[in-house]
Design a protein around this nucleic acid. Structure first.
Lengths: 332, 332
DNA sequence: TTGTAAGCGTTATCAT
DNA sequence: ATGATAACGCTTACAA
């Protein structure tokens, strides 16, 4: 074990006081250039490493933030993580992973971590927020999700508008029988996407048969099941707008299992542009959500909050249609 | 801001000394049941929350560990994270994310974090390890990867044997022209899988034409490219054993783009059983690697290390063949 | 510009 | 079984 060298040691070595060392090293107070240099050299020579906990205890900042998601194994969050991590790193923050498994009690635990100073703030992607914790909420930014009326700053995309883009695309291809597989009812993001679907259809004067909107849960299984239901309809759709890519994979699979050719016999468009949407066959046409960027922005906003600045307006990032191989003009 | 209540306050409230409170609350030393109860009540009443940094400063334990990967956006790690997180949580540890982007300097930074007490240990999944940091290495467990001669405890699967299982499967189906798309040369895991492929083929008396082993990089792009190369061979393979699922998706895509029917015209088997291997069409036959379990085991081992116990033997977990729809007897 | 000294909130040691 | 007291290593008034 290398004898842990502390500020005192380097003070002794440099022939100054501990406080001067502290000032020199944190570049905080005023210190003569010459002494600063001397101190830095001594620190280097002794291979000094500041003690994090001691510093935190004094400054009351943990220099770490929390990223809280509902299911850490959901690949959707990956690139958001990446963006958060990159920006956090630049600001010398560490990132703690929080996994709630949808359990409100666990969500509260994470708020307690910021209350107790274990984290300086948090990026929330669970889509929900507990009661209370008013003080902690000043250090929270919501990413990816919508939490209406929470008063929290959001970093996200315009889900309704983007869903509209997807539908427009299908419409422009000449589709008239367009169905939608949505996310869970009542969930903000899901509702927005559904709203975008409905409004765009209505604006175009299109009819939406009752059975053409099926409620899924963002997972493969529901994509599988609901596609079967849709294709079994007396008048099946010629195109499906799916609320996320994972369910869209399910559509692709079921359609192909039934021998339907994609895109000529069935067009499908997903949402999110997760990594694997280019890996499937045919490569999935989808809406790109700039997840790395969302992560970066969310972290930037959080840093501002931590610095005590007022929360800015919600940040809305742009999406774009990624036209790959699962959409085309309908055959009939 | 709730006035932060500290041990002193609850000591006053309970009419005892601070040290007694500390003992009672941490259940460390001896304290009369009655006083302990009284103290607990007072703490409850005052809504006491121990200060993490102060405790850490004293105990020299941060109660957080580091999970370090090469690319945080790689979905392979997700379920490992999940396992780590679950076990860490039970032991009241937090999990910090580390992302090296393959940069050795960044890898070192994470070792410095454990040296500097920011983390009590680390789970390493980058497949490499820096020079030095001998003390810190006592708090490291390698998961998922092989770092030969590192002397570090590993939690992983038997890659060679599992690759053998995959090849056996193809062999038992009657394939003779079996190719392999490997991972990067020199990388431990990749070499093991390739070794398993070669040995099993040789044991079965099968010939491996030179072109039948193509070196990939675990990513989709190389799967795409190398499949094309393989299929363009004068005598193309009837089956491909792919070193991971993502590249296998590439095989599926290219084969289908060329109008090859899977599995009748080409069998493919992947490795890892990532979530999306059941989402593609046809659902991918693959080798399941128990990643959640690996995460849990790795964290358990790390907890032992942190507790000062000697590192045990490497933990080798079992894999299994997941027979889905991309393998069948060869057509000719 | 630098030094002195007082904490930050715990826990560990040593008496009692 | 409990209490005083001294750290843990750092930052920050305040004084010089």
């Amino acid at each position: 074990m290398t004898a842990n060298v502390k500020i005192k040691d380097i003070a002794k070595a440099a022939g100054v006081s501990a406080s001067t060392v502290s000032r020199a090293l944190t570049a905080n107070g005023f210190v003569a250039a010459a002494t600063a240099e001397k101190i830095r050299k001594a620190a280097e020579a002794l291979n000094y490493r500041p003690n994090f906990q001691a510093r935190s205890l004094r400054t009351k900042r943990s220099m770490s933030i929390l990223v809280v998601v509902r299911d850490i194994a959901n690949p959707f969050y990956l690139e958001v993580f990446k963006g958060v991590e990159a920006t956090a790193r630049e600001a010398r923050y560490s990132v703690l992973m929080g996994n709630t498994e949808g359990d409100p009690a666990r969500e509260e635990e994470y708020f307690e971590m910021v209350r107790d100073g274990q984290a300086d703030g948090m990026i929330l992607m669970t889509g929900m927020v507990p009661e209370g914790y008013e003080d902690q909420k000043k250090k929270v930014v919501v990413a990816t999700q919508m939490i209406p009326d929470s008063g929290l700053p959001h970093v996200l995309i315009d889900n309704a508008k983007s869903a509209g883009m997807a539908v427009e695309h299908l419409l422009s291809l000449g589709h008239t029988r367009i169905a939608h597989i949505s996310g869970p009812e009542g969930e903000g993001m899901s509702e927005e996407r559904k709203k975008g679907f409905i409004q765009t259809m209505e604006n175009a004067g299109m009819d939406i048969p009752a059975d053409y909107i099926q409620e899924g849960d963002y997972h493969l299984g529901s994509g599988l099941k609901l596609t079967a239901r849709l294709l079994d309809l007396p008048v099946p759709p010629s195109a499906i707008f799916v609320a996320n890519d994972e369910m869209a994979f399910g559509v692709l699979r079921v359609a192909q299992e039934r021998g339907l050719h994609i895109p000529s016999e069935l067009s499908v468009i997903g949402f999110d542009n997760i990594h694997f949407s280019q890996a499937v066959f045919p490569p999935l046409t989808t809406i790109n959500q700039p997840r790395v960027e969302i992560g970066k922005c969310a972290m930037k906003s959080l840093l501002q909050l931590i610095a005590g600045e007022q929360p800015g307006n919600d940040v809305v990032l742009q999406t774009e249609l990624v036209h790959r191989a699962t959409t085309a003009a309908p055959q009939n």
